[in-house]
């Protein structure tokens, strides 16, 4: 009797999950393919990752693996970051770094955009420039530092030129790639509506590529920061990199780390800015794109 009862019970238990799954709304699996997260969930999970990172940093810094002076914890680093801004006029260093980034990147885009647009649109332009610029792209910009120092000295011109050289070749090739992805049928639609070459170039090819351009710029700006640090470490009196080199001389590791944090935050800020621009300028793309 008891055996039969328990059999019934397990039989029911076997049925239950299947029925449950049918009515259940939220996904029951933690890991499944093609899952999408709500904004709040993403925020929570993202914070979790950062929390873990800071925890690990704090714990390891207290484990006496290295002297405090060489491996300060997060609290010490954020403390000296505050000190830098409040007492050591770090803001002007940050501003001159940001100015270098923005100026050099603006010049790079101004040069790369027309060339990329024409290369992506017209096979003959591509035929001439692609082999040339495609090769230059692989020359590491820092290799030109000695030359630039001799030609342009140690001032801002030298730094901005280095930053420019670091991104402009990649930018041209990538913007041309974006341009090339314009569907042929959109171009032909414009032609059969009476659109000439110039009209089609601007109202279809350029307009279709615009979101891709913004996204490419967002990615290349991150690369720009790499060259900024190199430029400012080599020879500079101001800027985030210069501050870090000064701090190295006096073994102020917390200041160096504060500099790294600053660069990270600034890079993130620009990234967010570009994403915001993307979302507000291209609402027609719908949700399928990020």
């Amino acid at each position: 009797m008891t055996a039969r009862l328990s059999e019934q019970a397990t039989g029911q238990a076997r049925l239950a999950p299947a029925e449950h799954a049918r009515t259940r709304r939220s996904p029951r699996r933690w890991f499944d393919f093609n899952q999408t997260l709500k904004g709040s969930q993403r925020l929570l999970l993202g914070s979790l990752g950062w929390l873990g990172f800071f925890l690990l940093w704090q714990i390891t810094s207290q484990m006496e693996l290295a002297p405090d002076r060489l491996y300060p914890g997060p609290a010490a680093v954020f403390g000296s970051l505050w000190e830098l801004f409040a007492e050591k006029n770090f803001l002007s260093d940050v501003l001159s770094s940001v100015t270098r980034i923005v100026l050099s990147f603006a010049i790079a885009v101004l040069i790369a955009l027309p060339i990329g647009l024409l290369m992506g649109s017209f096979a003959r332009v591509d035929g001439v420039l692609n082999p040339l610029l495609g090769a230059w792209r692989y020359l590491p910009a820092p290799a030109f530092i000695p030359l630039l120092l001799m030609w342009l000295g140690t001032g801002d011109t030298q730094k901005i030129t280095l930053l420019l050289m670091g991104v402009v070749f990649f930018l041209v090739i990538m913007l041309a790639d974006v341009t090339r992805q314009t569907p042929k049928v959109l171009i032909e639609t414009a032609k059969t509506l009476g659109g000439g070459r110039r009209t089609t170039l601007w109202t279809v090819v350029f307009r279709h590529s615009l979101p891709g351009y913004v996204d490419t710029c967002r990615q290349m700006l991150a690369v720009s920061w790499t060259y900024l640090v190199i430029a400012e470490i080599v020879a500079a009196t101001d800027g985030i990199g210069a501050m870090m080199m000064r701090a190295k001389r006096f073994v102020h590791v917390d200041d160096i780390m504060a500099g790294i944090v600053t660069i990270g935050v600034l890079g993130l800020l620009f990234d967010v800015l570009f994403r915001l621009l993307y979302r507000t300028c291209f609402p027609y793309l719908g949700r399928g794109h990020s």
């Binding site: 569907p183 049928v185 959109l186 032909e188 639609t189 032609k191 059969t192 509506l193 009476g194 279809v204 307009r207 279709h208 615009l210 291209f282 027609y284 793309l285």
Partner: peptide, 19 residues
């Protein structure tokens, strides 16, 4: 060459997505 006098409707519903 293509021209305004001959309008074409393509197979794959081409509309300009940004308009």
């Amino acid at each position: 060459q293509p021209g305004r006098d001959r309008g074409m409707v393509f197979q794959d519903y081409t509309s300009f997505p940004w308009l």
